[in-house]
Lab assay of single mutants.
Amino acid sequence: VLKALERTRQLDIPDEKTMPVLMKLLEEAGGNWSYIKLDNYTALVDAIYSVED
């Protein structure tokens, strides 16, 4: 979780936006981090930006 938060902080995305999206992605992935961690957490960042749209 810390590495995911560090990555999104680099992009000026607050933890308050990151955590709900991260928890949803983890739930959808059955707790499997490998998809979320791919390409420096690209799936997480993309999911956060899609929620903002």
Score class of each variant (00 low, 15 high):
Val1Glu: 06
Val1Asp: 05
Lys3Thr: 08
Ala4Thr: 04
Ala4Pro: 03
Leu5Thr: 03
Glu6Ser: 07
Glu6Gly: 05
Thr8Lys: 02
Arg9Gly: 04
Gln10Gly: 10
Gln10Phe: 10
Leu11Met: 08
Leu11Gly: 03
Asp12Asn: 15
Ile13Trp: 03
Ile13Cys: 04
Pro14Asp: 07
Pro14Gly: 05
Asp15Gly: 03
Asp15Phe: 06
Asp15Thr: 02
Asp15Asn: 04
Asp15Val: 04
Asp15Ser: 04
Glu16Ser: 12
Glu16Asp: 11
Glu16Trp: 15
Glu16Pro: 05
Lys17Leu: 12
Thr18Ser: 12
Thr18Met: 07
Thr18Phe: 04
Pro20Ile: 11
Pro20Leu: 12
Pro20Asp: 08
Val21Thr: 06
Val21Tyr: 05
Val21Ala: 07
Val21Phe: 06
Leu22Met: 04
Met23Gln: 08
Lys24Arg: 15
Lys24Gly: 06
Leu25Pro: 00
Leu25Glu: 00
Leu26Arg: 00
Leu26Val: 05
Glu27Arg: 10
Glu27Met: 11
Glu27Ile: 11
Glu27Ser: 11
Glu28Asp: 11
Glu28Asn: 09
Glu28Cys: 10
Glu28Pro: 01
Ala29Thr: 15
Ala29Gln: 13
Gly30Val: 05
Gly30Leu: 09
Gly30Ala: 09
Gly31Met: 08
Asn32Phe: 06
Asn32Gly: 06
Asn32Arg: 08
Trp33His: 02
Trp33Gly: 00
Ser34Asp: 15
Ser34Glu: 15
Tyr35Asn: 12
Tyr35Met: 13
Tyr35Leu: 12
Ile36Lys: 00
Lys37Leu: 14
Lys37Tyr: 11
Lys37Phe: 11
Leu38Pro: 06
Leu38Met: 14
Leu38Ser: 11
Asp39His: 10
Asp39Thr: 05
Asn40Arg: 07
Asn40Tyr: 06
Tyr41Leu: 04
Tyr41Met: 03
Thr42Gln: 15
Thr42Ile: 12
Thr42Phe: 13
Leu44Arg: 00
Leu44Trp: 03
Leu44Lys: 01
Val45Gln: 02
Val45Tyr: 02
Val45Met: 07
Asp46Gln: 15
Ala47Phe: 06
Ala47Asp: 02
Ala47Pro: 00
Ala47Asn: 04
Ile48Met: 06
Tyr49Asp: 06
Ser50Gly: 12
Val51Ser: 15
Val51Tyr: 14
Val51Gly: 12
Glu52Val: 12
Glu52Pro: 11
Asp53Gln: 14
Asp53Lys: 13
Asp53Ile: 13
Asp53Ser: 14
Asp53Glu: 14
